[in-house]
Amino acid sequence: MKTTKTTSVDLLLHPVRLRIIQALLGDRRMTTAALAAELSDVSTATLYRHVAALADAGVLEVTGEQRVRGAVERTYALHLPAAQLDEEELAAMTPGDHRQAFMAFVAGLLAGFDRYLERGDTDLRRDGVGYRQTALWLSDEEFAAFVADLRAVFEARAANGPREGRTRRMVTTVLMPSVP
């Protein structure tokens, strides 16, 4: 892994790179071949190019290597701190940058939901799928406590790894004030 931090909105929120990052969330380790199977609509050359860009930036780290038919097959894991924008990078973004980043985020969410629906055997209740919006009236202090509570709920389960009986579930949050 390179130590130079070269992450940026453009690097992290490119649609294919965002899907690679999402595929590795939850402490998953995958070869490029496994990523190609999961992102089957992405050409192999495109996938390898984007994996290389993420690895060069330190967003992906090599956790293993093995020889396969004369080539080296690498297993990658997500280096989560490098896959997130820090406070400085967020503060330097313009409103247009934030709009573009949010659109890429929402587009990735929509594409994932479309892939789920296209599976053909969707059952939202069985699969635990839901989406809703709720309005809460909170002071700044109450909001900070709410966010701390959410963080504690997520952190209590974030260390769960894959095992028999567990299904990888994607949880997405968007918090913003209501503006009339």
Rank of each mutant, 00 (worst) to 15 (best):
P15Q: 03
R29C: 12
V147C: 08
T172W: 10
V68C: 02
S178A: 15
V51M: 03
L47I: 06
R125M: 10
R67G: 00
T173E: 09
A156Y: 00
E118V: 03
A148D: 14
V72T: 12
R17W: 02
W137S: 15
L13M: 10
V68R: 04
G70P: 01
R29L: 05
T4I: 14
H14E: 15
D97F: 00
Y76S: 07
R28P: 00
V51Q: 02
L47Y: 01
G70A: 04
R29F: 08
M176K: 11
G161V: 08
F113L: 14
L13I: 00
M1W: 01
R132W: 13
V9H: 01
E118L: 13
P162E: 13
T46P: 01
T167W: 07
V62I: 15
A37G: 09
R99A: 15
L35T: 03
A33E: 12
L54D: 02
S139M: 09
D56C: 02
F102L: 15
V62W: 03
F113C: 08
V106K: 10
A37V: 04
L85V: 02
H98Y: 04
T31D: 03
Q22A: 14
V153I: 13
S178H: 09
D121I: 06
R132C: 12
A55T: 11
T6C: 05
Y48F: 08
T4D: 10
F146G: 02
F105I: 07
Y76R: 06
A45F: 06
G161M: 03
V51P: 00
R166T: 06
T167L: 14
M30R: 09
D27E: 11
A36I: 00
R168G: 08
G64S: 09
G64W: 06
M176Q: 12
T31Y: 01
Q66T: 12
E89C: 03
R151E: 15
G112A: 14
A145L: 15
R169Y: 12
T44W: 10
T3M: 10
A52Y: 05
F146P: 00
R19S: 14
A135E: 10
T31L: 03
A152T: 11
G161L: 07
S8K: 03
S40M: 02
A55Q: 12
L124M: 14
P180R: 11
R157C: 04
V62A: 13
D86F: 03
D41V: 07
T173R: 02
D149V: 07
L78C: 04
R115Q: 13
F143E: 14
T31V: 07
M170R: 15
